[in-house]
């Protein structure tokens, strides 16, 4: 056993914070057994620490306000860092793809290019609402809690609005939509330049997870997948790569718990 006199106030706090090595930790623990007053104080500190965490963890879990995300994204450094040559190359490829796609349009049966229903509905809803200036959403992000609770209730299963801050998109709000007689939810996001993407969600009959699938229409593209009883579609006027990386973030965000 370590010398009793060698336990200091610093040891007590390091003990509370769990940063002592095993040996020292054991020494403090046995010292505390002999010093009930100190033991009581240690317990109070531990309770206090737990209470503080408990009280403020909710702030940590809140979605980040769009002003804060924008503060980071509007930096000039970020704009300078946009890889223009790569984007230009991507545009050229897109144009080539468009031309070759057009030239073979009659050679493919229509069905092969028909997107799955969720993607089609998501893309229609996307097209209708992203261009809406005055009422892009039914419930705005200022009432996010209410929005999510409401949509969860309507879809009959707890739902979340994925956080897309890391991709540079902040939540604008959401709305309830009809999807073949079933309720569906649309969340809209916006980047600092006002570009919008939407996440479309509805209950899925399929229990199993599916891989990301891609579909593209005239004005927007979508990735769609099934995960944990929901069908998702992410729609936006972005390249396949950009959209995929955001879709991956949606998936990741919804699966972190």
């Amino acid at each position: 056993m370590t010398h009793i006199s060698s336990i200091t106030e610093n040891d007590i706090h390091a003990y509370v914070d769990g940063v002592l090595d095993k040996e020292r930790c054991a020494a403090v623990a046995s010292w505390l057994e002999a010093h009930p007053d100190a033991a009581e104080r240690v317990q109070a500190y531990k309770d206090q620490k737990a209470l503080i965490r408990d009280a403020f963890d909710a702030v940590f879990d809140e979605p980040v306000p769009i002003e804060l995300t924008n503060e980071v994204l509007k930096s000039r450094g970020f704009r300078v860092a946009i890889p223009w040559p790569r984007i230009a190359a991507g545009l050229v490829l897109l144009m080539l793809g468009g031309i070759s796609g057009w030239s073979v349009r009659d050679q493919w049966p229509e069905r092969a290019t028909m997107p799955a229903p969720i993607a089609g509905n998501a893309l229609s809803a996307h097209a209708v609402y992203v261009s809406e200036v005055r009422h892009p959403v039914e419930v705005g992000v200022d009432q996010e809690k209410h929005l999510v609770a409401w949509l969860s209730k309507r879809l009959g299963k707890p739902l979340r609005a994925p956080g897309l801050a890391a991709s540079g998109y902040g939540l604008v709000g959401g709305r309830l939509l009809p999807d073949n007689g079933q309720p569906a939810a649309q969340f809209m996001y916006e980047d600092v330049d006002g570009n919008r993407i939407t996440v479309y969600v509805r209950r899925s009959l399929e229990a199993r997870e599916t891989a990301f699938k891609f579909t593209s229409q005239e004005n927007a593209s979508a990735f769609y997948w099934v995960d944990s009883g929901f069908s998702y579609a992410l729609a936006g006027k972005l390249s396949r790569e950009e959209l995929l990386s955001i879709a991956e973030q949606v998936y990741k965000d919804l699966n972190q718990n």
Binding site: F56, D57, V59, V64, V72, S75, A165, A166
Partner: peptide
């Protein structure tokens, strides 16, 4: 930028 963005929830809390 993404390292900074990751820290926003910590800073807010």
């Amino acid at each position: 930028i993404s390292l900074i963005t990751e820290q926003i929830p910590h800073l807010r809390r």
